[in-house]
Design a protein around this nucleic acid. Structure first.
Length: 316
DNA sequence: AAATCTCTCAACCGCCGCTGT
DNA sequence: GACAGCGGCGGTTGAGAGATT
């Protein structure tokens, strides 16, 4: 008699039944866990010890918190991941009631995509090179004199010399802040502090401006203290289209160049995105109050639209 | 209403490190 | 020191559910 693939070696595989769950819970309540190798036999389960341990640790444990991740939890995951990397068990240890498996799944299915959409590399937590290259392309299309340097994994500008600045930022307006010092009228950006020659025609994308302190990582080094009036008019937008695999970056800060950038790259499509993109409209999120609050990291970023002359493919 | 596509997440697999012999 | 057993971890898979066509 042949055994089904899910029952090789007399051991069952696949989804657990309520009866099996009950047996496992019952046994652990009476005898405690540990000795996972012998537990299934003693508990009358046709499972391997590993499977029992996993079922208990990831699903049956009484202290497991089920349900959606809160905004705070998501922020914590991102912050911890930026420091720890894929150390899911260590991250889980900092989130009571959440399992490493759950966090790992949530990272892979939600957070990772969100960061990518925002132009942030989910591995390094720094601006993605492809976005920067795109910005470079677009910038040089707009102003052939401007070229963009790459930011390597150490967040350092490299490659060709820094662009010649048509308007170098006043140095006394650049300060170093701790993340918790960020205020609402602050714009944070990441660049090499030794070479902080911001040129605003390229810097918004090149240096990945971000806004306020709810950033998912710490890749901002400097803060621009905007006058309140400008800050309040900084409508930060972020929208994407699952159909076009694109996103729109917008910026409406007074005094900043007003680009429209549409139908650009995004490596992953998204179904969670709340809006649909076309060349004439986009959904705007203001102050993180639109839609599901957890989908509003983008609202903390200053995004640029490069309009006029771009077709839906993002090319001139 | 059916077919197809996309997404989620529970579960598995292989590897690694620790411990005991 | 070498080996075996075990638990734990991180990457990956695939079934099922939901969304879309």
């Amino acid at each position: 008699m042949t055994k089904s693939p899910s029952e090789k070696n007399g051991l069952k595989k696949g989804p657990w039944t309520p009866e099996e769950d009950h047996k496992l819970i019952d046994y652990i309540q009476k005898h405690g866990h540990g000795k996972w190798r012998t537990l299934p036999k003693n508990a009358g389960l046709k499972r391997c010890g590993k499977s029992c341990r996993l079922r208990w640790a990831n699903y049956l444990r009484p202290d497991i918190k089920r349900g959606r991740f809160s905004f705070e939890e998501e922020e914590a995951i991102i912050q911890l991941h930026s420091v720890l990397g894929n150390k899911w068990s260590t991250i889980a240890a900092n989130l009571p009631g959440r399992t490493d498996n759950e966090i790992k799944n949530y990272w892979n299915t939600h957070i990772k995509k969100k960061l990518i959409k925002m132009g942030i590399d989910p591995v390094t937590h720094t601006p993605r090179l492809d976005v920067l290259q795109l910005a470079s392309f677009l910038s040089s299309s707009i102003n052939p004199d401007v070229t963009l340097n790459h930011i390597n994994n150490n967040n350092q500008l490299s490659g060709s010399p820094l662009p010649q600045c048509s308007q170098t930022m006043q140095h006394d307006s650049i300060q170093t802040f701790q993340p918790n010092q960020l205020q609402e009228n602050h714009i944070a950006y990441k660049t090499n502090p030794m070479e902080a020659k911001l040129e605003h025609q390229i810097s918004p994308i090149a240096t990945s401006f971000s806004h306020q302190s709810t950033l998912p990582n710490l890749w901002y080094d400097h803060i621009i203290d905007l006058p309140q009036a400008q800050s309040s008019s900084a409508m930060q937008c972020f929208s994407s289209s699952p159909k076009l695999n694109t996103f729109v970056l917008e910026n409406q800060i007074e005094g900043m160049p007003n680009f429209n950038l549409s139908s650009l790259l995004s490596s992953t499509p998204s179904s969670s995105s709340p809006s649909t993109l076309n060349s004439s409209s986009s959904t705007t999120f203001v102050n993180g109050t639109t839609e599901d609050e957890r989908d509003t990291y983008g609202s903390n970023m200053l995004m640029y639209n490069i309009s006029n002359g771009l077709n839906d493919s993002g090319f001139l």
